[in-house]
Design a protein around this nucleic acid. Structure first.
Length: 462
RNA sequence: GUCCCCAUCGUCUAGCCAGGUCCAGGACACCGGCCUUUCACGCCGGCGACACGGGUUCGAAUCCCGUUGGGGACGCCA
């Protein structure tokens, strides 16, 4: 049992492609089979090396490792030509000399007559040979049906009369997609072809090609498309559509995987799946047949969940680029690791985590103007002075004692606990929102806490 | 235009294949409350769907037909 993922390197790995890759990977891993990675770069015009790197980078980020490959179709042209020759010899293919203009005309006429714009088989029985500008076409049956039992959609059938004779060798001597995929899937022993919905109508023609090559036909499973919020095919105008975009937006690969898996596949009411659970539970039968709209809110929720599960050390490893984007380049890693468990319940992405971490990592955090104007005022001098004294006296290692002292202070000053905590909070981190005030003190430590309290005090004076 | 596919809350979906236990369950989002030193987290509650029309049946979200809507394909792109 062997699956494959064959993107064409003409752009970054999209969410749809990533999900297709994931399903193939999961299916192979679940059944203990193999997963093949191949690059369909027969279109030399649009294929680029940078896209190959980008796609492989995205696969790596998601942890979708392959057992064989990467294979490049551009390196297998000889094999394709051999297959085409085989079909020419057996009469399953023929040379066609029709110029593009005639093809256009034929299609126009067919369309006008209310039919499909198909090739009319003009050269089919002419017994032509190679010539400049000539192509090779597959000689398809013009009666009967081609059907298969789709692993996801069930029985599907096409009338062969709906299929025209497709080009398998271009006039420039390169093979076309249809021919290359089939030859590759045969040579690489692919048993299950799991791909996007948009390939359904390609399937009957490819099945015919397998038969013409006297090769076993694999099983097919067509997964529905991923749509944008407006229910049209997901594309750039919907915003971030590339997997790497989400890495930069601060999402964790395990969240992306979880999200992609649940987009079209389900296991009862379960929403949270680890990579391992996915491998154990994945099955094609539970993949839905309808298209699905991608919802960032759901990704946010999943990411928030996995962010809480992640090892703080690992998060600290992932954070530098996000901190650098905020201008924080040098900082004490130990402080960051200490802060992460406290700040992360308040965040959903690494971008937000970096935002919440910043006040603990810089020498003097910026004071939010509104917060400063409200809490760093002369009326709060006594509170800050008293708290400074408490921190100096008690340190930050005894939160119980500190809390008791805070409560006594609040009672003495006739305010609620918040009346004490808020000014201190703004003095310490420059914002009105933070983890519990005693946790903040613990993260900063005695000396830095005192320094910030002093700084706030002198700011009030000035 | 022709062919193919699809259709449950705003979104992802369970249920459908083996009709009744579904005046349809879960999750996200949204709204309200609780918790609370702030902000979150968490907990509780609320809002909210079987596209429409026929048929089969004692009984249909589940089976059949049609309609409508959506998507895809129709290339010397993949």
């Amino acid at each position: 049992m062997r699956t494959r993922f064959p993107p064409s390197p003409t752009g970054a790995l999209h969410l749809g492609g990533a999900r297709t890759a994931l399903f193939n990977w999961l299916f192979a891993r679940h059944h203990g089979g193999e997963f093949v990675f191949r690059l369909e770069d027969t279109d030399r015009e649009r294929s680029r090396d940078e896209h190959v790197d980008s796609i492989m980078g995205a696969m790596d980020w998601l942890g979708l490792d392959w057992d064989q490959g990467p294979f490049y179709q551009s390196q297998r042209f000889d094999r394709y030509r051999q297959a085409i020759q085989q079909m020419l010899d057996s009469g399953r293919a023929y040379w066609c000399h029709c110029p593009p203009e005639r093809l256009d005309q034929v299609r126009q006429e067919a369309l006008a007559k209310g039919g499909k714009p198909m090739y009319d088989g003009h050269c089919r029985e002419l017994g032509l040979g190679p010539a400049p500008g000539a192509v090779v076409r597959f000689r398809g049956p013009n009666s009967g049906d081609t059907a298969w039992k789709d692993l996801i959609k069930g029985p599907i059938s096409f009338a062969n009369s709906e299929l025209d004779d497709l080009v398998i060798l271009r006039s420039d001597g390169s093979p076309t997609y249809h021919l290359a995929v089939v030859v590759d899937d045969v040579d690489m022993g692919i048993s299950h072809v799991i791909r996007g919905d948009d390939h359904v109508s390609n399937t009957p023609r490819q099945i015919l090609l397998y038969q013409a090559l006297d090769s076993p036909v694999p099983q097919f499973g067509h997964v529905p498309m991923i749509l944008g919020p407006d229910k049209t095919k997901l594309s750039k105008r919907h915003g971030a559509t590339a997997v790497v975009d989400y890495r930069e937006l601060g999402y964790l690969p395990e969240a992306m995987l979880n999200c992609l898996a649940r987009l079209g596949w389900s296991h009862g009411d379960q929403e949270i799946f680890s990579r391992q659970e996915l491998v154990e539970l994945f099955n094609l039968e539970a993949v839905g047949r309808g298209a699905a709209v991608f919802d960032v809110d759901k990704l946010n929720h999943l990411n928030a969940h996995w962010l809480q599960q992640a090892d703080p050390q690992r998060l600290a490893d992932l954070l530098p680029p996000f901190l650098a984007a905020r201008g924080v380049n040098a900082f004490d890693r130990a402080t960051l690791v200490k802060a992460i468990p406290e700040i992360r319940p308040r965040t959903k992405t690494l971008v937000e985590l970096a935002d919440w971490a910043e006040p603990y990592l810089v020498e003097a955090p910026a004071i939010d103007p509104k917060a400063g104007a409200k809490f760093l005022v002369s009326a709060n001098r006594p509170v800050l002075e008293r708290v400074r004294g408490l921190v100096a006296e008690l340190g930050v290692e005894a939160p119980e004692a500190m809390e008791e002292a805070f409560r006594q202070l609040a009672e003495e000053l006739g305010v609620k606990l918040g009346g004490v905590a808020q000014p201190v909070r703004v003095a310490l981190v420059g914002r009105t929102a933070s983890p519990g005030i005693f946790e903040v003190l613990a993260i900063l430590g005695r000396e830095r806490s005192l320094a910030r309290l002093d700084r706030a005090l002198s700011a009030i004076q000035g």
